[in-house]
Design a binder for these strands. Structure first.
Lengths: 156, 156
DNA sequence: ATTGAAATCAGTGATCC
DNA sequence: GGATCACTGATTTCAAT
């Protein structure tokens, strides 16, 4: 489904649900002056069409044992290595985000680790073997993190 | 609250809620053999203590008008500029993530934009004025994205 | 998209380990 | 302190329109 199939109701639903996945459907219904069943059907459609990817509980990483956050850039010496790098990254559960990029790096990933020692161990033992070069950016403070803004103008 | 206050029930709740923020409390209760009220109380405590940061609906960025995703690294020429950069980044709703980092960059941010032209406009007009140098990594494919793993061993 | 109805759920307070 | 039970009001979900 592409974005031109949006209407104002879909937009309002996404806007309300974006930062509160547990907002009751009936509450959305009251604020939009439609029935609860209509909201229910819309959300089902938004989910089955892939616009809503899922409902996630945001958990504080340090509280569950992840004191270190880092980004790793890969500079590959061989274009055929892309898939190999991705496979390795997928196999590491602490890798939460992975992109193919243009610019300084070919592949770019975000990773959590228990501490700096654990991070370095993962990089040395699992990521830096015959695929080229890596560069690591260690975060010493997550200044902020928020969802993408849902803007009406983007959808007309 | 620090992590040593966790017990197995908290862990199971976080594990179940992590990838499904709308999972009914009573369903969690049945799967853990405790009452719904106990789950309710636990989730309140996890939320008020900051371990659960919130419940977010994950929305497909291209579906809502964000075709371009990029990372921007800032190399500052003056340490007092940290706060200025953060203020500028906060003022741009499309910036979803911002870190202080060690390594190639001082500040590192993730941004969504309508398209490449829009991205470059934001970088030129709002980010690159007298704060040092920036480098941009444009993602041409998000290979995967997932939540941090909730592992029992991390919490004992 | 709505109605209406059944099943299920969230949240509260008294009570009991 | 933390879980349970019992209960009320709210919510989800479905079929029919």
């Amino acid at each position: 489904m592409s974005r031109q199939h949006f209407d104002t109701l879909d937009f309002k639903i996404l806007e309300m649900l974006s930062n509160n996945a547990r907002k009751p459907f009936l509450e959305i219904a009251r604020e939009t002056n439609v029935s609860g069943a209509a909201i229910h059907q819309r959300i089902q459609k938004l989910t089955s069409s892939g616009i809503i990817r899922g409902f996630e509980t945001i958990i504080d990483p340090p509280s569950v044992g992840y004191e270190t956050c880092a980004y790793i850039g890969f500079i590959l010496n061989d274009p055929t290595k892309f898939d190999e790098v991705v496979e390795r990254l997928k196999a590491i559960p602490e890798v939460v985000d992975c992109h193919f990029t243009t610019g300084s790096y070919d592949v770019f990933a975000k990773i959590f680790a228990h501490n700096n020692a654990h991070l370095l161990e993962v990089i040395h033992k699992k990521l830096r073997l015959g695929i080229g070069r890596t560069e690591t950016l260690i975060s010493f403070k997550e200044v902020f993190k928020r969802p993408i803004p849902i803007l009406h103008e983007n959808m007309e």
